[in-house]
């Protein structure tokens, strides 16, 4: 490109600096987990995996993971179901209220999450609903359903409706058209939507913190332990939680690949 711009070296240095800033805190968590003293004094006198051994044997580690997993699974199911239908209304069909629907749909994304969490907490309590992992699913979904709807819609914008009409003309039934034409076209969007839903739910703190009640998801527990009662166990569990989410994503991607090969 243009030779008049800043030197290529400067540009590369800028990008490296941005990446370094983004990853330093994450590296710091890993480094902190390799100690065995309750006080953070870097560099550690002893480098050890003790904290991981303790974390794996600690029943609460798996409790936290189970609750986070349960919530994320609920959010994925809810947001894929609602998001697929919503995407049809957003991008596939042309109808009178569509402009308004598109504008209203994005509002939850442009809304401060902790404020949404507090508003939901107040409403649930007023309605006599006791906060639990189920209320977290609802809270996450308010924010994630619009995102998944948009992710699936992006796929649908490139969708040619004529294919469906051609299938009808060739004598296919409504169900056949949906299974053979519409769903395969939607599938990549649904899959990315599900991944987004899982990851966003797994890592969410601001909505969970006010709506989870006694069922503590992983990020909320980490948040509470950062302030008080620090031990290398805390960063170790943070690392384990991140690895587990990466494994789930890799597993899903692998499963999809295997299914595609079977077909």
């Amino acid at each position: 490109m243009s030779r008049s711009g800043p030197l290529p070296f400067l540009r590369a240095a800028w990008i490296v600096a941005i990446l370094a800033c983004l990853y330093l805190p994450i590296v710091s968590v890993v480094l902190a987990s390799l100690a065995n003293s309750r006080y953070m004094r870097f560099p550690h006198r002893v480098w050890t995996l003790d904290a991981y051994r303790e974390a794996v044997g600690f029943f609460q580690t798996w409790d936290l993971h189970l609750i986070s997993l349960q919530i994320a699974a609920g959010v994925v199911a809810l947001s894929v179901a609602l998001g697929t239908l919503g995407a049809m209304a957003y991008a596939r069909y042309d109808w009178r209220g569509r402009g308004l629907f598109r504008r209203l749909l994005v509002l939850p994304v442009f809304f401060p999450q902790p404020v949404l969490g507090l508003a939901l907490l107040l409403s649930f309590t007023a309605a006599g609903v006791v906060p639990s992992w189920k209320t977290v699913v609802i809270a996450h979904a308010v924010w994630i359903v619009p995102i998944v709807t948009l992710v699936i819609s992006i796929r649908l914008f490139g969708y040619d409706v004529a294919q469906e009409e051609a299938a009808f003309d060739l004598g296919a039934t409504r169900l056949q058209v949906f299974r053979e034409v519409t769903l395969p076209a939607l599938w990549p969007g649904i899959f990315s939507g599900a991944l987004f839903a899982f990851l966003l739910s797994w890592s969410n703190l601001p909505l969970s913190i006010y709506t989870s009640g006694p069922d503590t998801p992983l990020p909320v527990w980490l948040f509470s332990r950062v302030a008080t009662n620090y031990a290398p166990l805390v960063p170790a569990i943070a690392v384990i939680g991140t690895i587990v989410s990466a494994l789930v994503v890799l597993g899903l991607v692998g499963l999809r690949g295997a299914l595609a090969r079977l077909r």
Binding site: P25, I26, S28, L199, W202, L205, V226
Partner: peptide, 14 residues
């Protein structure tokens, strides 16, 4: 996609 509690925690450790 890494929880903000993890990243902020890392920031404070740093």
């Amino acid at each position: 996609f890494i929880s903000e509690s993890v990243r902020l925690f890392g920031m404070s450790l740093f």
